[in-house]
Design a binder for these strands. Sequence first.
DNA 1: AAGAGGATGAACT
DNA 2: GTTCATCCTCTTG
Length: 218
Amino acid sequence: MLQAAKVAKKLQLPDFLQNSLPEAFYLRDDVTQIARELLGKILATEMDGQICAIRITETEAYRAPDDRACHAWGNRLTPRTRVMFEPGGRAYVYLCYGIHHLFNVVTAPAGMAHAVLVRAGEPVWGEEFMLARRSMRTLTPRLCSGPGALTQALGLRTDAHNNASLLSHSGAVWISDDGRRVPQPLVSQRIGVDYAGPDARRPWRFLMPDTKFVSRPA
DNA sequence: AAGAGGATGAACT
DNA sequence: GTTCATCCTCTTG
């Protein structure tokens, strides 16, 4: 038996979760392009032996220094934004409204504070664990549609996962490519950033068409 | 030291 | 359409 197959069996990890996106995917400096390309990719978590995964259906790009909606606008470096300045391929998870943990993919080389907020997904693995975390009995698009709902379903939290690497499928959180081809995304303004003035109208929200697993229509 | 506000979601009317 | 839970982060003084 091949070594990779042995590892897979030990972790009980299905094949489609094993093709982690390489670091080079994240280190590019075009965050809107990366936000587009993350649609259809698989976001997976493993905690306490529970493996969960969703197909990403909705993303938003945030880009310092010129984007006022970005926490690191003006290259503002604070304890919270520090992780956004690190090299791409890690998680930026922060607490929003005191209640919701929001998950972002850090992108670009070190020093460029770019990130992609993952806003929604369609469950593809470990649905029973996600339902339990959400206190839901049946699968509906609400299970992981909306950035706070998504992190609750996947078990992602600021204290445990901020600055976590996304590069290894043996970690707590990673993103894999199962080869699925995705159609041209829908595009809209970002949600909930009205305070950002003109930047609020940037067309930096991307959605998979033909799915109900999004936080709201384009 | 204090205050304001937030990349939301659920439960209402 | 509205309200509001809940707490961290940042700014101001």
